[in-house]
Simulated assay, not measured.
Amino acid sequence: MTSAPPLRERKKQRTRQALIDAALHLFGSRGFGGVTLDELCEEVEVSKRTFFRYFAGKEDVAMAPLQDMWRAFLVELETIPADGRPLVELMQAALLGALERVADEAWAGRAALSYRLSQETSTMDAYNLHFCESTMRSVVEVLHRRLDLLGDRRTRLAGDMLVAAWRVAVGEWVAEAGERPSVPALADRVRDAVAALPGSLALTATPQPEER
């Protein structure tokens, strides 16, 4: 049986989650630019010094649900068996494992809010792209360390394809989820998007038929 984290750690986790929930609520109702960091800290009754123990800034706290999932993905990559399957399939399994590790129905709602904010806010979108690039470098490092792929640029291409499939999947999921996003629905979207990757590489550039 896994023991519960120490009390101090549980308190830190609760404070971090309270900051995330308050940020998503305030940004969602008033807009990202309509909420100051002072107002966010006041909402949770913590100091800015405490805030910066957990997050680098407003963008960081707003993107936390999705970033937590990608950090869990890196953990999954470290331990998932290297069993000879195609690399994209291996990474898909690690991604679905990360969803199981961090995701519940509360996470699904937070993740959907975070995604919507990133689409509406240019600074958040830019921050997300920077995080994605940093994460992908870590992914390549893990795969090159664990697998016989050192120096193979296809590793990065496979990772980028997985991220592209994820972006399509999460975009469709948020658009269709309404007020009740669910983790199983997101997992299904990920599977569908990854399954479509080979066909996307085989698409032909056939012109539209001329109108008659």
Rank of each mutant, 00 (worst) to 15 (best):
Glu76Thr: 07
Ile80Ser: 11
Ala82Ser: 11
Gly84Met: 00
Gly84Val: 02
Pro86His: 01
Val88Gly: 00
Leu90Cys: 06
Met91Gln: 10
Ala94Lys: 04
Ala94Asn: 05
Glu100Pro: 00
Val102Gly: 12
Ala103Arg: 09
Glu105Leu: 10
Ala106Gln: 10
Trp107Asp: 04
Ala108Cys: 09
Arg110Ser: 05
Ala112Gly: 12
Ala112Asp: 10
Leu113Asp: 13
Leu113Cys: 11
Leu113Phe: 00
Leu113Ile: 01
Tyr115Cys: 06
Arg116Pro: 01
Leu117Asn: 07
Leu117Ala: 13
Ser118Arg: 14
Thr123Met: 06
Thr123Pro: 05
Ala126Met: 10
Ala126Tyr: 05
Ala126His: 11
Tyr127Ser: 07
Asn128Arg: 15
Glu133Phe: 13
Ser134Tyr: 01
Met136Tyr: 07
Arg137Gln: 13
Val139Lys: 06
Val140Glu: 11
Val140Lys: 10
Val140Asp: 09
Glu141Leu: 13
Val142Asn: 05
Leu143Tyr: 00
Leu143Trp: 00
Leu143Phe: 00
Leu147Glu: 08
Leu149Trp: 04
Leu150Tyr: 09
Gly151Leu: 04
Arg153Thr: 13
Arg153Gln: 09
Arg156Lys: 11
Gly159Leu: 03
Asp160Arg: 14
Val163Lys: 12
Arg167Lys: 11
Val168Thr: 15
Ala169His: 12
Gly171Phe: 05
Val174Lys: 06
